[in-house]
Design a protein around this nucleic acid. Structure first.
Lengths: 193, 193
DNA sequence: GTCTATATGGCGATAGAC
DNA sequence: GTCTATCGCCATATAGAC
């Protein structure tokens, strides 16, 4: 791996943990065993490094969903695979998830457009197509958004839900989350699940 | 309003917009038309001010749900009112919502416990009781978590979803969100909604 | 309780040698 | 491409007058 890639990878982790203003270029330099000047040789300034790091983290996940939308699968099977895949990606790549959450908080409208286009749009269109097959609703956009929102925030709230009554360790297992999210989506809250 | 309360109120807004390390004590002092020393007269350091501000913002919302859980209402009506109320609170008090999101990202386990106990626990118990009446599922904790997660992230993702295909302005109206979230919860994704 | 002035240190970023 | 040394600035926090 090149120095630049190594710096980027490390920056992704540090930015995701500490945010833009929380991470210092000195911290980063120390983490990659370089001087700050060496880091500045690869990136013109902190802002540009941050944008590169976000881009880098998001690009890594671009192909994670490639196997989900295979044509020969039934619509409900596609949805099931998407939910499982989303749960897995968000639970496994913690840096990616946290960086995305921070972008939702801090990004300006231009960065939101980038996030929409480069990270979400393709999967979102596939998801809407599947929902259109499964649902009688005209609010396909809203339903697709609900699927993603439900998965994201369940995982995001895990460190909190541990301290709420009724929590059990199995609630954090990937299969459990995927199964119960899917059950809620297909049958609503009333189901036996 | 006392100086201390005025500082706290202002700090809540600034912390929610810029995060802990992004907001400077000088910014805050300027915003309340004081010197930094005057601010330090009321709070021993930045960390303590931050914790006070979080506490302050969360306490403001403690009574927002008082009218939701009235005994004489049917269970599905209670759920409906809770969803509407949650949508309203999170959409109206943007500082509260953003501060909560930041806490989910940055808080250590002790602060998570505080957040669980002081902000969520009471409403969460009411919500679980209602779901227990409505549902045949044994996973009441998980269902309650799903309700909150769904509402939170739909609102959190609004600035992003604006740039995704199929978006319509009505998707951001409070009544629309509440109605469709409730429909999804009661009937799943297949419904006409 | 609020001010001015200041101590002390970390920050982003650059200069110039190798 | 990486280093050492440093600039200029802004950060948190404090001292002491009013």
């Amino acid at each position: 791996m090149s120095s630049k890639e190594y710096i980027l990878q490390t920056a992704v982790t540090l930015f995701s943990k500490q945010g833009f203003s929380g991470m210092s270029m000195r911290d980063l330099a120390k983490s990659v065993n370089m001087s700050t000047s060496a880091v500045y040789h690869h990136f013109p300034n902190k802002q540009a490094l941050y944008l590169d790091a976000v881009h880098f983290a998001f690009a890594k996940q671009a192909s994670a969903f490639d196997e989900v939308w295979q044509a020969e699968l039934a619509a409900d099977e596609k949805l099931s695979r998407f939910v499982s895949c989303l749960v897995r990606v968000l639970s496994t790549d913690v840096d990616f998830r946290r960086l995305m959450q921070r972008e939702l908080l801090d990004a300006d409208d231009g960065r939101m457009q980038l996030l929409a286009k480069e990270v979400f749009q393709e999967q979102f269109c596939h998801l809407m197509a599947v929902i259109e097959q499964l649902s009688e609703s005209r609010q396909v956009h809203f339903s697709a958004l609900s699927v993603i929102a439900l998965v994201c925030d369940i995982i995001q709230m895990q460190p909190l839900s541990r301290h709420l009554p009724g929590w059990q360790a199995e609630h954090e297992q990937l299969d459990f989350i995927a199964e119960h999210v899917l059950n809620l989506l297909m049958n609503g809250i009333k189901s036996k699940g």
